[in-house]
Amino acid sequence: MTATTVQPTTLPTTATARERKVVPPIGMGRIVGVELRKMFDTRAGFWMLMSIAILSVLATGAAILFAPDADIDFELFGSAIGVPMSVILPMIAILSVTGEYTQRTGLTTYTMIPRRGRTIAAKGIAAVLVGVVSMFVALGIGALGNILGSAIVGVPTDWNISVTEFSQIVLAQVLGMTIGFMLGVLLRSSAAAIVTYFVYSLVLPGLLMLLAGLQSWFADIQPWVDFNMATSRLFDQTMTGEYWAQLGTSGLIWLVAPLAVGLALVMRSEVK
């Protein structure tokens, strides 16, 4: 087929072109605000947030009901609530990223803000904010449980979580959340990222433990390369300089490197 190009002879322009107007730039604070809103403006997102509170209350109730009286202290409630949190927070982080792809809202998001790194950074900030605030909510619920529990069983109320310990727990939860965030950025699919998160957090530790048991060379380096092991120390141990260093090296492998790859992919990939 030959191209039949008809060149317009005269242009019957009906109007003059509109003036370019002064456009206010989009500040980072605004993007973070919008991303926070997007996390919770659907039913799924809303109940995800609510489940943090609901599961904290349930975990507290279960601790009062089932724990031996002598064990009723703040630490018990802290760890009881920590379990559901360590599952839900990463899910929130994963879905905040993958939703743009699975639900295809990225088409709109990335045309409103073409520099995709800004949106991803805002999502990261929003996720950390949600993680930290959730931990304080959990702390409050745990504190109520501790008062209530000790009163019910008639033991003195024991506040045995120090500020340092609490900060470490918050850090551990946020790091878990960041792993979810990283998987969301890297895989850009809700199902794939969620499955991979559970493989990482539930299957991988067992496998690495097995490997360390069979191969002594791996047992030696495991603390330096196993991020699960390094973060789990934050929950219940006094962190030494070596522990922090191991958290750093393993985090480089499991968090920083894959996040960098994921970010490069997000920048380059086609949004469909």
Partner: peptide, 25 residues
């Protein structure tokens, strides 16, 4: 270039796929 616009929504209105929205919003 579109990607160089600081706040493109004020200059270019885009509709690529009306179904590409979060079904739950």
């Amino acid at each position: 270039r579109f990607v160089d616009l600081t706040n493109p929504g004020h200059e270019v209105g885009v509709l690529l796929d009306a179904s590409a929205q979060h079904a739950g919003r």
